[in-house]
Write a protein that binds this DNA or RNA. Sequence first.
RNA 1: GGAGAGGUGGCUGAGUGGCCGAAAGCGACGGUUUGCUAAACCGUUGUACCGGGUAAACUGGUACCGGGGGUUCGAAUCCCCCCCUCUCCGCCA
Length: 425
Amino acid sequence: MLDIKRIRDQYDAVVVGLAARGVKPDGVSAIRDIDLERRQMVTEVESLKGVRNRVSKEIGLRRKRGDDTAEAEASMRQVGDQIGALDERIRKADERLQAMLLMIPNIPHPGLPKGLDASGNQVVRTWGTVPTFNFMPRSHVELAEKLGVVDFARGTKISGAGFPLYVGLGARLQRALIQFMLDIHVRDHGYTELWPPVVVNAASMTGTGQLPKMKDDMYAIPEDDLYLIPTAEVPVTNYYRDEVISSPLPIYLTAYTPCFRREAGAAGRDTRGLIRVHQFDKVEMVKFTDPATSYEELESLVLNAEDILQRLQLPYRVLMLCSGDISFAAAKCYDIELWAPGQNAWLEVSSCSNFEDFQARRAGIRYRDAKGKINFVHTLNGSGVALARLVVALLENGQQADGSVLLPAVLAPYLGGVDRLPLPH
RNA sequence: GGAGAGGUGGCUGAGUGGCCGAAAGCGACGGUUUGCUAAACCGUUGUACCGGGUAAACUGGUACCGGGGGUUCGAAUCCCCCCCUCUCCGCCA
């Protein structure tokens, strides 16, 4: 959520910033008008309340003396009615203002490449070498089925399309990867591990920005006003919701969770395989930082995610997203994409964002600065990394001519020494 | 799910209609004293919003005692609904 004062005092800059996203100024202009009207009403009602407070106090004293206060009481009844009417109008204005503010995305960092869609994104670095094959590389779908590590058909039977079922070494590989990634973030990158709820309330979803805009993309349990999380970002960032953080910043948290996405707007896209699914697993990193250092923290966050991929010896590239392609709540975002030979494409496995104070303001996450003043923190998060697509890359990059798959050596200790996915006999 | 008790400032805890933004204690911060530490003593100690001021300091006002609504000239205090915590019972991995 943007600071209403920023819209009030730096209106032109806000309009220019949002234009970089391709957002029209209608929303903020309406907000500015309602805000002005609201402030006039607030000033008026507060002066009326001041009168009422003073006179009511006098009534109390005069009654004690035995004076007749009927006249004053009658006139205060009138004032009370005026206050009630104004309060109601202010409440309605607040409601509209709040609803509109929640729909305004964050302002992109001015240093981003300009562009309105993915074509404007900039490759900032590439790591590793894209493997070459002396045979036609297969898709992970074919590999997974042949190896018996994913049973797509039974996943569909049990739940529906987009709910993969991992079997045998496939299941063990999921567990191994989760453990491997968490170990690195905790041991080498300084994160504290959380094991959070994966079903959260509406306030948490609003705090991180999924609600109200992305309601249709989430699985919901309306009877209980609960939602299945689309990412661990939601419970982990909301850890500090409505708090003044007393621990020193920065704070690094990490968590593995399953993630649930309806993919409502993506029907028919990437329907086969593990690339776009309704349930997948992910290790997420979240940072709470001082506003002064959040951009340095973003750089190190990306490196933390890259470290995982380097240890797995997988070729990837890092993109700086352009102003029009960053997510709703982000001010700056790097995507990390793994090479997937079977797709002949780069696959996004991590998205590392600095939200500045956008989420913190929505979620009420604050800290005390050096002077003791309370201020909003900056929040950041990034995948470290998403499992389903990581498995796609492991299968497609590690595939051998016979269809078996060699696994990165670092995973063997997590798989009881297994270093490959062999063909079943 | 049933019955009971309770939710007040960073914490403990008083307050049953006006003199309560809220006693007292603890903690924290500043000061006096001290070779250092401790103790003692004095002082300070919330947040948000609206207005004034070079939005830096400061200053006038409004709101906030779990959340929402009601009664009243006036609500932490009375009434209604909801949420949460604790205890007991039931159920259960």
